[in-house]
């Protein structure tokens, strides 16, 4: 069961991802509301996958992604972002994000993305 860390400042989005992932056989090991907490949780829980929102307070998704990748170059981070943030997503991919999910997301898309990244 792949272990997932969900990072998003919106509790609603965390719940949405958690609901989708848990009923598809993923285990949520942690939920972080900003990038700084995410880094701490990553070090603590060693998740297989991280879903990472971009727009967050304290430490945004890109900075947090970089920090996590520096701590663990093999970290599998999937960016969760909205239409209109193409530039940010490109930057995230260039910084080592494995893939991305577009909000509003569909259950099938989320699962396909995470499953492929988990097994890759």
């Amino acid at each position: 069961m792949p272990k997932v860390l969900v990072v998003d400042d919106a509790a609603f989005m965390r719940l949405a991802l958690k609901t989708i992932l848990e009923r598809n056989g993923f285990q949520i090991v942690g939920e972080a509301e900003n990038g700084a907490v995410a880094l701490k949780m990553y070090q603590e829980y060693k998740p297989d996958l991280v879903t990472m929102d971009i727009t967050m307070p304290v430490l945004d998704g890109i900075q947090s992604l970089k920090a996590i990748r520096q701590y663990d170059p093999k970290a599998k981070v999937i960016i969760v972002s909205a239409m209109g943030q193409e530039g940010m997503i490109k930057e995230a991919i260039a910084s080592g994000a494995k893939s991305f999910i577009i909000k509003p997301f569909k259950e099938g898309h989320v699962i396909e993305t995470l499953t492929k990244i988990a097994t890759a």
Partner: peptide, 20 residues
């Protein structure tokens, strides 16, 4: 790759700001 330093003070402030 620029690794942002997590400024502890900042982090604390953020904690207080976000009710969420």
């Amino acid at each position: 790759v620029m690794i942002p330093k997590i400024n502890n003070q900042n982090y604390q402030e953020g904690k207080e700001q976000t009710i969420t």
